[in-house]
């Protein structure tokens, strides 16, 4: 294997939902010069107060191993899962895309949205806002076609397929 080759990894981190936890994760990346291509965070287990952070990062095999080890070391981190290595998974992203222009331009955008399964969520006489979900590639394609004036992307969320279940509470060590 080429140790120098950089590869994109989707890493999922289950953390205690407490003050400063996101700053710890981000600080780890910025402090050591690692890339964050995408990052999403939200509470997923209100009973145990667990949040799930999805990180997409790019690095050599050694750097990715280092990132995972450093994440695991953080005190509020329960589990770290590298979906790129640990198994087949699904990745989705959501974007809100605003298109401005005359009637002809908006009608064209509606046609594109129709065949690319984007949903119209707001319209005014001079603008439309579409909601589009899918893989990042699909979002890129849609955005390229409709030539928007403004884009808001949520970042990647990911989950393992089938029986692979990431459950922070029952899998804690000890």
């Amino acid at each position: 294997m080429n140790m120098e080759e950089e590869k994109r990894h989707t890493i999922v981190v289950l953390v205690d939902n407490e003050a400063g936890v996101l700053a710890r994760v981000i600080g780890l990346f910025s402090g050591r010069g690692y890339n964050i291509d995408s990052l999403t965070v939200a509470e997923v287990d209100p009973v145990h107060k667990l949040s799930r952070i999805n990180i997409v990062t790019t690095g050599t095999e050694l750097v990715i191993e280092q990132i995972k080890a450093l994440l695991s070391k953080l005190v509020p981190v329960h589990r770290v899962q590298d979906l790129t290595i640990e198994g087949p998974h699904v990745e989705r992203e959501l974007a809100l895309v605003k298109v401005n222009g005359d009637r002809e331009r908006l009608v064209q955008a509606l046609r594109i949205a129709d065949f690319m399964h984007a949903r119209l969520v707001d319209s005014t006489p001079g603008s439309l806002v579409f909601e589009v979900t899918g893989s990042s590639d699909e979002l890129d394609a849609f955005i390229a076609l409709v030539e928007p004036v403004e884009v808001s992307r949520a970042g990647i969320v990911a989950i393992g397929r089938g029986d692979m279940i990431l459950d922070g509470v029952s899998q804690d060590r000890e």
């Binding site: 329960h78 804690d172 060590r173 000890e174």
Partner: peptide
Amino acid sequence: RRRSYSPR
């Protein structure tokens, strides 16, 4: 004692 921290 918190569950997320237990070094090997």
